[in-house]
Design a protein around this nucleic acid. Structure first.
Lengths: 216, 216
DNA sequence: TTCAGTCAGTGAACACTGTTCATTATCCGA
DNA sequence: TCGGATAATGAACAGTGTTCACTGACTGAA
């Protein structure tokens, strides 16, 4: 079976070329504007050929996003070393917003439209494991903050704290992605908006005024 | 010109029937799934007829959304009577989230994708007037809170405070719309999540612990 | 070496989308 | 009564994602 290996390797190589071409086009023009025919043309193929490697356009997109999703988690994972859970949450918040700004298209698909994971086994198997599931990682930090008596008594539910924290940074990130170019509001720099949110939210949750993070 | 009035009235009547049929279908199935042919069929017309009354599908959708947009503002406007600016912000936050849950499709289009207002004169003329522009109304409350010495010195920029506050409630609302049905997270009731966000954020911004609002 | 079978890739089709346009039918003001 | 404006039609168009009978090259066994 040496040559059947070669066959499989070639197959994967084509799959990767499709993914790579798609990623480039999607990043430049967005998911909707990029057509399967254009992706295929980019690597001198025909639209139908994509269906040999992916069930449909959605699976192609999901595959790309899942990779980005993992890259968020990888960015966040090293923060496990930060002992102070509050500071850890603050850093996670910053990293989360940064990710959103660096991969706006992925972020849009992952977090700004109806959940695409429900039927994706690859995503579901990551769930709950703090090393592979960013949300679980955040919840763990909240849990530790509560156990260490750092949180006010109203914020004794780690799940609720994590949900609220996520909503806050998601709000900052998604508004930046959609409206940063909009003249309606005199937007302050995204960096300052992120810090203001983290400062206010953590100060409001913690018993003692949390040390304000210096905006790097 | 009595009968040319009738002509105009009839024209507007058809326009309204289109809008009404479209609103119903959009609310049930979302903007993308509803096709111009289905809207037209609903009132025994043909797709092309819609173009007599609207430039294209986008203008039809924007017209519907603008009406909803005004209804947010109308819901919020009576709150001008609330003397305490902090309490006013809290109430506005609640009303904002409620609006999002009652009109998820409009909310999606208004606030969860790239800004559709930039070239809409009808929207631009409302800008800055606190009675017609919800954001200006929020900023005014922030401004008053600052002037009354209720905010910590870090939060002396009304624009930044308003932007942060909006981001927070938008985060709560948009996550609810997209992920409330998702099993990944053990979601607490939306009411509690809204209150937790308002409590934490306002407590973190104000000098003295703001009176916690009792949820409704 | 030969030969059957697997299977990646093709190109033409399909159903559907938003949009356009010549043509019709209707009503209005003169 | 007539002539012009115009709302509505239905067929068409270009483009979408997707399917499928077909080709042609490579593989593994005889």
């Amino acid at each position: 079976m040496p040559s059947s290996d070669r066959r499989a390797r070639q197959r994967e190589q084509v799959r990767d070329r499709i993914l790579s071409a798609a990623r480039g086009l999607f990043a430049r023009h967005g998911f909707e504007a990029v057509t399967l025919r254009k992706i295929a043309a980019e690597i001198d193929y025909v639209a139908g050929a994509i269906y040999v490697h992916f069930r449909d356009k959605e699976e192609l997109i999901r595959t790309l996003c899942l990779a980005d999703f993992d890259s968020v988690t990888k960015t966040v994972a090293p923060m496990a070393k930060i002992a102070d859970p509050i500071e850890r949450m603050r850093r996670m918040g910053r990293a989360y917003v940064s990710f959103a700004l660096e991969h706006p298209n992925s972020y849009r698909l992952l977090f700004m439209q109806a959940s695409p994971y429900d039927h994706d086994a690859r995503a579901l198997e990551r769930r709950g494991d703090p090393r592979r599931d960013g949300y679980a990682f955040l919840k763990l930090a909240a849990q530790q903050a509560i156990e260490q008596g750092r949180m006010r008594r109203e914020f004794a539910d780690a799940e609720l704290v994590a949900e609220t924290f996520w909503a806050a940074v998601h709000g900052v990130a998604s508004i930046e992605i959609n409206f940063s170019g909009d003249a309606w509001v005199a937007w302050r720099p995204i960096r300052r908006r992120t810090e203001a949110m983290l400062d206010a939210l953590l100060a409001g949750m913690c018993v003692e005024p949390a040390k304000r993070g210096r905006s790097k």
